[in-house]
């Protein structure tokens, strides 16, 4: 039984991955167009009655950005794992059921309406993105259920149709919008990691970590669900409850990620596959490790986005696609013998 996952193996791998994450976060926090000294950072906010620039850059610019990259990366990767398991489809990612177009629609409506109120010091864009994402996933779920209880094909088709419809609405609204409004929308759609408010970060992190822990709790049931609903039911899994919890949490953490950072592609597709190829498909391990490696991947991608064309910055979504594609292909070739869906 050497090949089975044990609690000891899981703890060792999770702690090792968390250590790698800590090293990556620390290293990336020191990288940027302005070089900073750690010694100066630990000197505090003020030195000799003036602002400490190293401290300001580290604490107010880089640290929140790295924390945000961690939570968005972890949320998207775990959500990808769940959608791949629920839909039993290797092509599934967090956006497959229309969250992206729903959030995009929310954003362009917010931009075009010219709403200028603020909540928690934020423009309405993030709230509209969040509402658009959750509203769309509810709509897809509702349409999917009309085709039968969690009918996978029905759900996927509903997702495709809603996605296409909302994308058309986005294109229509873009074509009648002013050029500045179009720019704001496209900038958001490309995905960007910028956040300065620690309250928002901790709130987001709290929700995402709680969601991932809840998903870990139902990971044995997700394993059984990989064999189809009927098989899982005969293995004692309460299908309706598991699907509702998994779907609800995955949708919620994706909506949080999307509202904080825009649309960042590839993370939710590539990271779960990469982790699955290396460590196997057991969700008890796949979920926590995907979360951590998703965080690592996005922290690195965002650091590259900050420095590649400095002083300008690239949208992080561009980097995740350019970095993620070839990296995944190497893994795919190397480990393809380990997975059945390639046979």
């Amino acid at each position: 039984m050497k090949e089975l996952l044990t609690p000891k193996k899981l703890v060792i791998r999770t702690v090792s991955a968390l250590t790698v994450l800590a090293v990556v976060m620390f290293t990336c926090s020191l990288i940027g167009t302005e070089s900073i000294s750690l010694k100066a950072v630990f000197g505090g906010a003020d030195i000799q009655e003036s602002v400490n620039p190293d401290y300001e850059i580290f604490v107010k610019v880089r640290l929140p950005r790295i924390i945000l990259a961690c939570l968005v990366g972890a949320a998207l990767a775990c959500s990808g794992v769940v959608f791949q398991a629920l839909l039993r489809n290797p092509l599934a990612d967090p956006y497959i059921l229309g969250i992206s177009s729903g959030a995009g629609l929310g954003v362009i409506i917010a931009v075009i309406s010219g709403l200028d109120w603020m909540l928690l010091g934020r423009s309405p864009i993030a709230f509209f993105a969040f509402a658009g994402a959750l509203g769309t996933i509810w709509l897809v779920w509702f349409i999917g259920r009309l085709t039968g209880k969690f009918h996978v094909t029905g759900l996927l088709l509903a997702g495709v149709v809603v996605n296409a419809f909302f994308s058309a609405v986005i294109m229509f609204l873009t074509s009648i919008a002013k050029s500045q409004q179009v720019y704001s929308t496209i900038f958001w759609l490309m995905g960007n990691i910028t956040e300065e408010d620690f309250l928002v970060l901790w709130l987001g992190a709290g929700f995402v970590v709680t969601g991932i822990l809840a998903l870990f709790y139902i990971s044995p049931q997700l394993n059984a669900l990989s064999f189809g609903e009927e098989d899982a039911r005969s293995m004692g899994v309460n299908i309706a409850r598991t699907q509702l919890i998994a779907f609800g949490i995955a949708a919620a953490i994706t909506a949080i990620a999307v509202s904080l950072s825009g649309l960042i592609g590839f993370v939710g597709l590539l990271v779960p596959h990469a982790v699955r190829l290396i460590f196997g498909p057991d969700h008890r391990q796949l979920l926590p490790l995907s979360g951590i490696f998703g965080a690592i991947f996005l922290v690195i991608a965002d650091t590259l986005a900050r420095v590649i064309i400095a002083p300008a910055q690239l949208p992080v979504g561009v980097v995740t696609a350019i970095l993620g594609g070839p990296f995944f292909l190497v893994l795919l070739v190397k480990y393809s013998r380990k997975v059945s869906w390639l046979r």
Binding site: P220, N223, A224, G280, P281, V339, S340, W341
Partner: peptide, 21 residues
Amino acid sequence: RQEFVPVFGFSVIETVLMART
């Protein structure tokens, strides 16, 4: 049930162990 192979490559022992969920 009639033969069904999951999309993701679970091993034989992982598959059998799932009955103990």
